[in-house]
Simulated assay, not measured.
Amino acid sequence: MDVVTNFFVGLHIIGIASLLGGFLTQMKAMSAGTARFVPAMLHGALTMLVTGIVLVGLNQAQDHPLNNIKIGIKMAVLVVILALVYVKRDDEQIAKPLFGAVGGLTMANIFIAVLWT
């Protein structure tokens, strides 16, 4: 069962890398005011959502203790990110504050995962 859990952790990390990488590749465009949400950002956020739900299920199935408040906050942040990226995915230009908010929320989600023990 640990192999399956580690596989989904790896996929979860790939999802966050896709979301953050998509944001970072648009940083130069953001300073020029031409940033947009690339498909990698949407796919990364969806990957994170699906693998996160699977990981919670796998951990509950193994009777591992879970911090439901942490998981709830991370999921709420991810749903906000996903909603923003999904709604604005076809726009040619995204406002700097909105684009920056997605990057900030992504980094906040990473730090919640790593630092909240």
Rank of each mutant, 00 (worst) to 15 (best):
M1L: 01
D2W: 00
V3E: 00
V4C: 00
V4L: 01
V4Q: 00
T5E: 00
T5W: 00
F7W: 06
F7V: 01
F8Q: 00
G10L: 12
G10W: 05
H12E: 07
H12M: 03
G15R: 13
G15E: 06
G15V: 12
I16L: 10
I16D: 02
S18W: 09
L19Y: 06
L19T: 12
L20I: 15
L20N: 12
G21E: 08
G21C: 12
L24G: 13
L24A: 15
T25F: 15
Q26H: 08
Q26K: 03
A29Y: 07
S31N: 14
A32P: 12
A32D: 15
A32C: 09
A35C: 12
F37A: 04
F37C: 06
V38K: 13
V38D: 02
P39Y: 07
P39N: 05
P39E: 02
M41L: 11
L42W: 05
G44S: 13
G44E: 07
L46I: 14
T47A: 15
M48H: 04
V50Q: 11
T51V: 10
I53V: 14
V54Y: 03
L55E: 01
V56K: 05
V56W: 01
V56Q: 02
V56I: 13
G57F: 02
G57M: 02
G57P: 01
Q60D: 13
Q60Y: 08
Q60S: 11
Q62S: 13
Q62K: 13
D63E: 08
D63W: 04
D63P: 05
H64Q: 04
H64P: 00
H64R: 05
P65F: 07
P65I: 05
P65T: 11
L66P: 00
N67H: 09
N67F: 03
N68Y: 14
N68L: 12
I69V: 13
K70H: 07
G72N: 11
G72P: 04
G72D: 12
A76N: 10
A76S: 14
A76W: 09
L78R: 15
L78I: 13
V80A: 09
V80F: 09
V80P: 10
A83C: 09
A83P: 10
L84Q: 05
V85G: 01
Y86C: 01
V87C: 05
K88F: 09
K88D: 02
K88P: 01
K88I: 01
D90E: 11
D90F: 09
D90G: 03
D90I: 07
E92D: 13
E92R: 14
Q93N: 15
Q93F: 10
A95T: 14
A95V: 08
P97D: 01
P97C: 00
P97H: 01
L98P: 11
L98N: 04
F99C: 04
G100M: 06
G100E: 08
A101F: 03
V102C: 10
V102T: 08
G103T: 02
G103D: 08
G103F: 06
L105P: 15
M107T: 14
A108L: 14
N109L: 03
I110V: 15
I110L: 08
F111N: 05
I112K: 08
I112Q: 02
I112G: 02
I112A: 07
A113T: 11
L115T: 13
T117P: 12
T117M: 10
T117I: 11
